[in-house]
Write a protein that binds this DNA or RNA. Structure first.
Length: 470
RNA sequence: GCUUCCUUAGCUCAGCCGGUUAGAGCAUCUGACUGUUAAUCAGAGGGUCCCUGGUUCGAGCCCAGGAGGGAGCGCCA
């Protein structure tokens, strides 16, 4: 009986040990048949494939089968047998069907897709995000999401990196990565005021203003200056009013930080990391990827294979500007050295000119963050952006400025308050070292690997402006 | 935040020049059919035409405001 408890749809579909009694539990996707025999497609989330349950109607009371509707939950006992039908190798000849949970078909919104093949849209599914994991699409996306999270930890662990937990609540708002969400326990009505009439955060929970983190990088650098090779993988929060298919207010970020790495090491790491993740997905998520490829994007598998077979194109910002200036294509926005590239420019480089992932480096210092290492020419910094087709920037990173004086100079130029970051500057005061790192947006990675087109469809419960349901 | 498009049955959509009782396909329900695979066949039920106000003899359709959604842009990962 304990053996029976362990069976999953995945295990049963792969099984060659037939004509044995099994117990399987799952949710009904569809039921069809006649008054003599019923066919139930059962899914338990272990795989995108369904297990066919065959029920001879005469063996079951009518009320029993009547409750077996799309969305209901069953425990089925029966014999695993070779299928008489053509759609599947094995099926269960049911001897007992227990309805664990009914699902009113007049109300349950995720009814089977009909013969017209027009299902519920991804937009409509966002309105019922609490139920959408039960669809094939979101089942596939969530299994792939899991596999990628695991592969990330595996990659770093296999390569000698340590996983560091950086704080979610931060006392500094000087990281420069975007607007922050305030964290406070002060009362909304009549908060305590100081002598100047401002809200007195000395009386707040932490005794100072605090926010949700926008990045674990600065704390990650602290750890890298002791452990050598570290990475973070945690939630980050940005209160930007961003309304695009590539931004979330709450997203997960992976940030490796490596002592003694320079910009080239950083690029090598980013490229090897991304390629190994895509390879992992192709090796471990074949069924789900095939479904997404067939259903949404016929080029998905080809694109993934292309990425693991081809090196990324590396060039400097200055070289990119020259290419864009001599391009025959007309751009809506002009290209000029010193201004940041627009989406259309990045897309041109990745999708038209090179037709492969691109790593752009050595941007003008004015358009990048204060902590990036200044190049010898004094005009550019050792930044790198990895640009992917359809996604744009998937990774942003840099070699960090390890020289205390140069770093302080940059902070003053960019009006970053030194006093708030005294602890960060201590890394440059005591045993400073060259180091480099980057941030990978987890959901953007999942966008690329799944071929989904909206980032709100690759996270279970998306958070974006005006939306925090579920 | 800006630009632009959209909102009609559970879902996907049609709805002509503003005209009287708002349609289709799928889903659901009922019935038929001895192994289905997008089952098939027959029938039935199902509507705050996003909301508010206006124009008009008359508004799903025209106008104004609002709400929600999509795409693009900016910010970035």
């Amino acid at each position: 009986m304990s053996d029976l408890r362990k069976t999953s749809v995945q295990d049963l579909l792969r099984s060659t040990d037939l004509d044995r009694e099994v117990l399987v539990r799952g949710w009904v996707r569809t039921r069809r048949g006649n008054k003599y025999v019923q066919f139930i497609a059962l899914n338990d989330g272990s795989t995108i494939h369904n297990l066919q349950v065959v029920a001879d109607a005469e063996k079951f009371p009518e009320e029993n089968l009547k409750e077996v509707t799309t969305g209901s939950c069953l425990a089925v006992r029966g014999k695993l047998v070779a299928s008489q039908g053509k759609g599947q190798a094995v099926e269960i000849q049911a001897s007992e069907i227990e309805v664990l949970g009914t699902s009113n078909p007049e109300e349950y919104p995720l009814q089977k897709r009909g013969s017209d093949q027009k299902g519920i849209s991804l937009e409509a599914l966002r309105e019922i995000a609490h139920l959408r994991p039960r669809t094939n699409t979101f089942g596939a996306v969530l299994r792939i999401r899991h596999a990628m999270a695991f592969a990330i930890h595996k990659y770093f662990n296999d390569n000698g990196y340590f996983y560091v937990h950086t704080p979610i609540i931060t006392g500094s708002d000087a990281e420069g990565a975007g607007q922050m969400f305030r964290v406070t326990t002060l009362p909304e009505q009549n908060p305590p005021l100081d002598e100047a009439g401002q809200v007195d955060y000395k009386q707040d929970f932490f005794g100072k203003p605090t926010n949700l983190t926008v990045s674990g990088q600065l704390e990650g650098e602290l750890a890298a200056m002791a452990l050598g090779k570290i990475y973070t993988f945690g939630p980050t929060f940005r209160a930007e009013n961003s309304n695009t298919a590539r931004h979330l207010a709450e997203f997960w970020m992976i940030e490796p930080e490596v002592a003694f790495n320079d910009l080239h090491d950083n690029m090598d790491l980013a490229e090897d990391f991304l390629r190994s993740l895509v390879r992992y997905a192709l090796e471990h998520c074949a069924d789900d990827l095939k479904f997404l490829n067939d259903q949404y994007d016929k080029e998905l598998l080809n694109r993934l294979k292309f990425v693991i077979d081809n090196e990324f194109q590396r060039l400097t910002y200055t070289e990119a500007v020259e290419i864009l200036k001599s391009a025959k294509q007309k751009f809506e926005f002009p290209v000029d050295w010193g201004t940041d590239l627009q989406s259309e420019h990045e897309r041109y480089l990745v999708e038209k000119h090179f037709k492969k992932p691109v790593i752009l480096t050595n941007y003008p210092k004015e358009i990048k963050a204060f902590y990036m290492k200044l190049d010898d020419d004094g005009r550019t910094v050792r930044a790198m952006d990895v640009l992917f087709p359809g996604i744009g920037e998937i990774i942003g990173g840099s070699q960090r400025e390890e020289d205390l004086q140069k770093l302080v100079t940059r902070m003053r130029e960019m009006h970053v308050p030194e006093e708030d970051l005294w602890w960060y500057l201590d890394t440059r005061r005591y045993g400073t070292a060259p180091h480099a790192g980057f941030g990978l947006g987890f959901e953007r990675l999942i966008l690329f690997v799944t071929g989904m087109s909206n980032i709100r469809d690759v996270i279970p419960f998306p958070r974006f402006p005006k939306s925090a349901e579920f």
